[in-house]
Structures are given as structure tokens and as C-alpha cells.
Design a binder for these strands. Structure first.
Lengths: 319, 319
DNA sequence: TTGAAAGCGCTACCAG
DNA sequence: CTGGTAGCGCTTTCAA
């Protein structure tokens, strides 16, 4: 009672208890406490691969905020595999986590699984409207549109898009934005200029190889993320194509690597760390108030201009 | 009893129980089980920053192996701060983790803390002989020596070293290796050619700036890790110094970025993922057999030659 | 082979 | 303000 700050404890007792605590090095067993209070003070974090710098940043944001609040974070890698996702969720649930942060939910993820859990779920990065959970991320339609329009404004007319796998709202939204931009610019949408990758460097490289062999050559490429953009740039260069001149390339994310002069990728900056922090905050808030309305938090993105888009500007640009 | 495979259960009962389990969607409460068995089936992972690709890879290795074995991984970031390390350890301990993986132990870390824990501890990457724990990592003396000797063999005579902070055996060992190489090559060790960084890109950049202004210019730089090496390269280039020609640069780690053509860092490859996997295995083994002798597992490293060392060779080289 | 009962360490409740 | 007691969901022991 002393340790839990129960009001009604005399100072004398309080002192004696505290002394004993110190002397014995007593630390409450959070496991037993959890069993009793039905609160484990731990949350789960599901991501596709912690090695991916995108998720690393989010994870750090989540953990920082969680630690502040006395929560522990249990993480699991799913490699974007639906089965692994389900197993991961169940595994975490049986550990009695108080809430769950999902970073790579798929539109095909079975809602029952999450609804039956009986614990709050927050979505970071990808929406999943059919789940009705709290969400934090950027407006990916606008992000895709902004990236494409930037190239259009700088005279690019034949824009290709390397999109992420279907099943991710982030990928779908960026495609939508790309199409919107084409339409606004009065450019025709062409199916063959959209190539699907899996957000990895390798898939970007392959897409780049493919696009670089096309004639007429596309004069602009919007990639669904930085990793694929960097892969595509490598591929284009290996084909003797000058990035920033023959072809303008833009990514989405602004991971650290993109800022290296040898890479110099123009991109749409996504505030990943903040997404993690905010996501965790949404979760903590909902743990406190389970029945408040679902919150959808849209953070701002900005264009980060470097060499790969060939517009000659270096710096950031709010959009 | 059915779920725990108690031998003495009739087939009839077993069937009925299993049916009920399925129907009700029963999942054992691991928390309650932990309270009773004193085993939580979870382990702790302490690292300085999950955003650092070095730790991301280790974390993935640990989690993969842990998940295979039915263990959950709780991670905490310490930013290499000793106080945060202690708090992190206590925080994890009160959650009754079955074991702990430490990736950035400091030589000054108080042994009592770890010994009093009463749970197995495994060290990954950095040794800490005063703790007497299991360990997995590479031979950093040899790594530092191999890197330096490589440059020496290619004619470099004025080798600088950007070392990591004191308090890390990995950093100290690499310095030792660097000195050994100089000695073997009959080169004088010069204090002023050793600059201390904190393993970050920024500190590498600053060190590079500093070294690049020295006259005579060092003709080779061994960095304590890739992040600092990349920072140093940027700095040198910004000074108009040609990396690979005027100055040869080598790092240690071989993080993914280093392989990008625009970076092309020659480095000593450390098997990070395997270190994570093996570290987790050592831990699981010790959880089973707490009193077996301490194991020290030294994994092989290899030289990965790219453009930054200017030796004209591209590829891997076992050492 | 079965089921009843005790108890892991904690918190919440309640009577003193 | 204090301390005793019940019980969280599980495993383990023991008697039937």
C-alpha cells in the first residue's frame, strides 16, 4: 500500500516500509501485479522487419514514449506475411499485453482477429478502415500527388511509378495520388508505366532495370518508398542513364541513407519517429478510455529536394 | 493437463477438452502460467538505439530465434547511457524475464547489478570479462589489425584511427589491433592520429574534417564503425580530398548502406544477424542449464573490399 | 486416470 | 489508519 501510494498510511509505517524495501532490495513482481490487475503494463509492436530503417525509427518512437509511461514493448517481425501476423497477434495477446501497435496491417487482415482481442489496437502508417481503430500516419494520397506534381512542374511528362504491393493502403493511396497528379496535369495514365515492387531495395532495382530499358524512356519515376527509389537509381545508373537529368527520381520516406551525397534522393519526408510516438500516445490514451471515438491523426509530410529529381533546388518544401 | 501433454489422460477426455478449447477459443494465460512456473517465456534485449542498423540486424536475429523457441522479446533503448542501462535492466527484471541479451555493455557497468539479477545474461558484440557471462562477437583486435594491415600492404604509411568511446571493449580492441598492425609494419604510433568519436555519422564527419585539415594529410583512415567511416568520407570529400586515392578509408560492420555504389565503403564485415541468433541461442541454452561454464563464441569476420580503400580490388576476403 | 486443493505475488476489499 | 482475506489463472501435488 505504501508503494502504491494508498492515502491512508501513517508516516511512521510508511518510513519503516520504505526502509525495509531499500534494505531488502524489494522490487514488485509486475507479473503477479498484472495477473491481479489485468494490466501488464506492456504493449505489443508488430512490424514487418525491424532491420528496415523505416520501422526502426517508428519502433524507437514507440519505445521512447512507452518507457516514459512505464510500459514495456514486445516486438515481433512478420515479414509482411499474413499468417505470421496472425500468429504474432495471438502470441502477444496471450501475454496479456494492454494494447497493440500495428505498423503493417493489410487490407485483407481479418477484422475478427483484432476485434476479438478485446484490447486497444492502434494503426501506424497504414490505414485499415474496416477495423475502426485509431490511426496515425500521413496523407498518402497527397504525398503521392505532391511527389508527382513536383516532377510535372519541372517539365517531366512521362512519369512511371514503382508501387508497393497491393493490400497496403499506403501503397494504394500513393498510386491514387500519382494518378490524380497525372490527371491534373492533363497527362495520360498508362498501365505499363506502373510496376509493382515489395518495398525492398532489390525490387526497386529490378523495376529500375525494367523501366530503364523502355523506349521511349520514362523521364520521371515516383517510387513507393526510398528503398525502392534507391534501388531504381542504381539500376538506371548501371544502364548508363543519368539520374536527375535523363530521369528524375523521387521516393517517399526520407530515410537517413537518402541524405548521403552519394545517394542524394529527393523524397517525401515522413515523420516516422513522431508517428511512433503519436501512435503510442493514442494507444495509451485508449487504454485509459477504451470507449472514446476512433481518432485519425494525419501528420504533415514535406518534400525534401536533393539531386535525384533534377530540379536544381536543394532543401525542404512544405506542401 | 491435456494442453501440457500430461501423460495420464484418457483419449476420451483429451478429445472433449480439445473440442472445448477450440470452441471457446481458449488460449492459456502466459502471465498466470509465468507466475506459477516462474518462467515468463520472454527475454530482454538491451541496445543503445534500435534505429542504428547495426542493432537492428542483431535485434532481428535475436527475435527470430526467440520466436522459434516460443519466447517473446522485450527491448529497451539506452542510448549508451549507463543510468538508462541500469534502469532498463531493473525494468526488465521486474517483468520476470527469463534472460537478458546485452549488446552494448560498458566496461564500467557494475557487476553487482547483473549478478544479483539471478537470471542468465548474454553479451553480444562487446565483451565484459568482469561479468563472466556468455559472449558472442568477433575478434575485434584481429578485425582492427586486419583493416589496418590491408591499408599498409597497399602502401599506406600514415594511418589515422577514428575510435569509439572508451568503455567499450569492441572499441578498445580495435584500437589495440590498429596499434599491433602499425607495429608489425614498423610504423610509429602517433597519438594525434587517433580521434575519438561516439560511433555516430556526425562524430565521424567531425573527425573527418579534423583529419582532412592535418598536414601532412593522413593517407589512410580506419574507423571504428561504418557510420563514422561514412561520415569521415563525406567530410574528406567536402574538403576536396579524394577518398580511395588521397586517403584510403576502412570501416567495420558492413551495414547495408556501405554497399551502395555512391558510398562504396571498404569494411570489415561483422555477421550481425548471426550474432543475434547465436546470442539468443546461448541464452536459451543457459536458461536450460544455468550452471554450465561460460561460453565465448568468436565468429569470423571478413574484409569486404570496395572503392574507399583504393586497392583496386572488389570483393570479399577471408582473413 | 481423475479431480480437488494449494499457492505463485500481488491488489482490493472489508472489518476492526 | 491498519491488517487480514480472497482470488487473478495457472501448475503441481496428492488423494481418490
Amino acid at each position: 500500500m505504501v508503494l502504491n501510494n494508498r492515502a491512508s498510511v501513517s508516516l511512521a509505517v510508511r518510513g519503516r516500509v520504505l526502509a525495509a524495501v531499500r534494505e531488502l532490495g524489494y522490487r514488485p513482481d509486475l507479473m503477479a501485479r498484472a495477473l491481479r490487475t489485468r494490466r501488464s503494463a506492456s504493449i505489443g509492436l508488430l512490424l514487418s522487419d525491424i532491420r528496415n530503417p523505416f520501422f526502426g525509427d517508428i519502433a524507437r518512437g514507440v519505445e521512447d514514449r512507452a518507457r516514459d509511461a512505464g510500459y514495456a514493448v514486445i516486438f515481433t517481425n512478420t515479414d509482411a506475411d499474413p499468417d505470421a501476423e496472425i500468429r504474432g497477434v495471438y502470441g502477444l495477446a496471450s501475454r496479456r499485453i494492454d494494447g497493440l501497435v500495428l505498423t503493417s496491417i493489410r487490407t485483407t487482415s481479418p477484422p475478427e482477429v483484432y476485434q476479438r482481442l478485446g484490447i486497444p489496437v492502434v494503426l501506424v502508417n497504414r490505414r485499415a478502415d474496416h477495423l475502426g481503430c485509431d490511426f496515425v500516419g500521413i496523407d498518402n494520397v497527397k504525398a503521392g500527388r505532391d511527389a508527382a506534381l513536383h516532377l510535372v512542374w519541372h517539365g517531366r511528362r512521362r512519369l512511371a511509378h514503382i508501387r508497393g504491393l497491393p493490400g497496403s493502403t499506403a501503397s494504394e493511396d500513393r498510386v491514387t495520388g500519382y494518378r490524380q497528379a497525372l490527371e491534373e496535369a492533363g497527362l495520360a495514365f498508362c498501365d505499363s508505366l506502373v510496376i509493382t515492387g515489395d518495398l525492398s531495395f532489390k525490387s526497386g532495382y529490378e523495376a529500375g532495370l525494367e523501366l530503364g530499358r523502355r523506349r521511349p524512356l520514362p523521364d520521371g519515376v515516383i517510387a513507393g518508398n526510398d528503398l525502392m527509389a534507391i534501388g531504381a537509381m542504381e539500376a538506371l545508373r548501371s544502364l548508363g542513364i543519368r539520374v536527375g537529368e535523363d530521369v528524375a527520381v523521387m521516393g517517399v520516406d526520407d530515410i537517413w541513407v537518402s541524405s548521403l551525397p552519394g545517394v542524394s534522393l529527393s523524397t517525401v519526408r515522413q515523420p516516422r519517429y513522431e508517428m511512433g510516438v503519436k501512435g503510442c500516445e493514442l494507444l495509451l490514451a485508449r487504454i485509459e478510455q477504451p470507449r472514446r471515438g476512433a481518432v485519425r491523426l494525419i501528420l504533415d509530410h514535406e518534400l525534401v529536394l536533393r539531386g535525384s529529381c533534377g530540379c536544381g533546388v536543394y532543401g525542404r518544401k512544405s506542401v
